[in-house]
């Protein structure tokens, strides 16, 4: 297959990639079909994000059990301080377990 021999200047590459200099919000000049593709993928990602938030909220009760077990282990096996060094945490250092823990931001 013949190969197009085309050297592309780096400045042109950068200008196209970054859009107008000094304006981070300025959208790069892209063909409409590329813009459409990005919009569709971003929308799909938004749907995935919302689904993840729902699933992670639904995991809350199990997570609270895991947190209680973790707080127990901190007092028996210890807190992982560094590379195998552990410290047993005193009961008064253990924070209260809230009703909900947000994990996706």
């Amino acid at each position: 297959m013949a190969t197009k021999k085309r050297a592309v200047s780096k400045s042109a590459v950068k200008a196209r990639a970054k859009g107008r200099k000094g304006s981070p919000a300025a959208a790069p000049q892209r063909p409409e079909e590329v813009e459409r593709w990005i919009r569709a993928e971003v929308q799909a990602q938004e749907r995935i994000y919302r689904r993840i938030v729902r699933e992670m909220n639904a995991l809350n009760d199990r997570r609270l059990k895991w947190v209680r077990a973790f707080y127990q282990r901190l007092q028996t096996r210890g807190f992982s301080v560094h590379a195998g060094i552990r410290r047993k945490v005193r009961p008064e250092e253990i924070p209260p377990v809230p009703k909900r823990i947000r994990v996706v931001f």
Partner: peptide
């Protein structure tokens, strides 16, 4: 975004 230009030479 994913982009590709056929070229066997580096860009300047």
């Amino acid at each position: 975004e994913p982009n590709i230009i056929e070229s066997d030479q580096d860009a300047t």
